[in-house]
Design a protein around this nucleic acid. Structure first.
Lengths: 320, 320
DNA sequence: TCCGATTATATTCGATCTGACAATAAGGGG
DNA sequence: CCCCTTATTGTCAGATCGAATATAATCGGA
């Protein structure tokens, strides 16, 4: 009565009826020189990953093992992202079931111990339309007419209206505000409209500089999921500090948040928010790196992980 | 180079090295008469679940299939919660790996089509300390000294301070505010301190009326995850309407939100927020159910699922 | 039919928060 | 000593939020 009727199918493939392959996939992020970077292996089009195996004590430790083995990078902060069941991935014809459990990890670039066939790439190479720090990126001037065209290409009027609306919301057309958290929705729209490489077809695919670098299988979708999650999370949890050096200036902190969010923040307001939440404390030293008046150095108050636990790091973003 | 060295382990059990059993588990929620209800099977201590099988087109459709088969309930809104790898669950000794992918589903009680060995229970039967609608529940008067006792029982002073602090934050001791979103943290504290049944031991377990009804395996933890997610989500996405009838009064809507959040909301402020976000529109009819002045009936504006898509239903909660 | 009990709906007010802008302070270099 | 650069502090109006109050509509009993 509990788990019923598992024997009704003909066991056709190598796998038994109720078993599946389980893969662990990592989106490993660091920020360097105001640029959000992704850890990749192979041709910079693959995320670190590997099968969940018997000797792994847990999903997390399995993931750490694979990433360290493939990239030489030990991981700090880890958070589960999403679990996909991707039939297409390995073998649709063989009817294997493959499950991918994806994780978001935050580190710093320096923690590498040499090694391996891996490297860091700005995540905006994969999503050129996501970086609004210098205003609306030019690639959107190319993508917008293509998206409109796709919307108008629908057979019935209802679908057309719906498509126009979805595109307008996701990309901020028609005087709407840009919402940096909609990274996944934007990716899915571009996928549906076949403007990017993964989306089969290929005839309508925009040039790589516009549509961004593709990745194998569904890895770019997983990256989009990670970016969206991170952009949302920095607003209510102090996770940014996982990406910072032990001591830093407030401007460095701001630039890091801006790199992740893909948009600029008002400086005084950012400072006010960080200080009034008591997220940081002065080290007493100053940094002379920037030319002008020396900036005070701060360190993260680890105490907030206890007492403030949930309050969160709101970030003040410009409205329009 | 991609997925390397999968043959290094001795194939010991029935399962092959890189395969695992995958279960789908559902937390199905409805709200009836201002009471948040959970759909259970068996002895009201089991969540609907079943193995992910070959004939399932996707994880979601597999889940829908199992729930409908076990309870006769078709599901509407579904959202993935978390993926657990629970060695303990099925057979630690056999070294099987079992993966549980959990989902949160929202429906209405009426949509049942009779059938089956299942039923609805208020989720506060499992978590009596979570309902603060009538002020701080009395069970906390019993749990608090037990938690303090547990905290003071630690060997070193650092651990003691840390435990006291965690308990105070999670449960709102020492004049802190109650935070309804910390359901999972509270469950984990009670688990660690062995005050609930699942936590092995048993000698310190409080009476069932205080520690709540237990569930099999880790099902109560999964429920806690679902409650926490839902309490967080109603604040920024209009998901409440999945639980409402096609037309409803604003007070009914408020009572539903309060049931989920486990705390009361200021009436005028709630109305203001709902109206200024244009989440609902009047049907033109009124409800006479309540005795006094008839309440206007409203329906959900499905348009907001498009245009406002992400804005969100903030809910105004009392501060202290 | 009038009155009060009950519930729904509308309005107001002050505290706080937020975004935008301006002003001042502290270094380096000519 | 002046000027340029960057850091830091301060101000102000508008929006938001929580709390409390005032008004409206129905029912039932005197």
């Amino acid at each position: 009565m509990d788990h019923q009727a598992k024997g009704t199918r003909k066991g056709r493939a190598a796998l038994k009826a109720d078993e599946a392959k389980v893969d662990l996939i990592a989106v490993v992020v660091a920020v360097n020189d105001s640029e959000p970077c992704l850890l990749t292996i192979g041709n910079a089009d693959t995320l670190p990953s590997g099968p969940y195996a018997l000797e792994h004590r847990s999903l997390q430790s399995g993931l750490r093992g694979w990433v360290e083995q493939q990239t030489g990078h030990p991981l700090g902060y880890i958070e589960q992202l999403y679990t996909f069941a991707d039939r297409d991935r390995i073998g649709a014809e063989r009817q294997e079931r493959a499950i991918s459990i994806s994780y978001l990890a935050l580190t710093r670039k320096e923690q590498a111990t040499g090694s391996a066939n891996c490297g860091w790439r700005s995540w905006y190479e994969y999503f050129p339309w996501e970086d609004h720090r210098s205003g609306t990126p030019v690639v959107l001037d190319i993508l917008r007419p293509r998206l409109i065209e796709w919307a108008e290409g629908a057979s019935d009027a209802t679908t057309r209206r719906e498509r126009r609306q979805r595109a307008a919301i996701a990309f901020g057309f028609d005087d709407r505000n840009w919402n940096e958290e909609l990274t996944l929705q934007r990716y899915e729209l571009l996928y549906e409209s076949a403007l990017i490489e993964e989306a089969g077809g290929g005839r309508d695919v925009a040039p790589a500089a516009v549509s961004g670098k593709a990745m194998i299988a569904d890895h770019r979708r997983i990256l989009a999921t990670g970016i969206a999650r991170l952009r949302s999370k920095i607003k209510y949890r102090p996770v940014v500090f996982e990406l910072m050096r032990p001591s830093f200036t407030l401007l460095q902190l701001q630039r890091t948040v801006e790199a992740l969010a893909g948009r600029l923040i008002n400086k005084p307001n950012f400072r006010r928010l960080v200080e009034q939440q008591e997220l940081v404390e002065e080290t007493g030293e100053t940094s002379l790196e920037t030319g002008g008046r020396p900036a005070k150095l701060y360190r993260f108050r680890h105490a907030v992980l206890d007492d403030r636990a949930v309050a969160g790091t709101k970030l003040p973003l410009a409205r329009a």
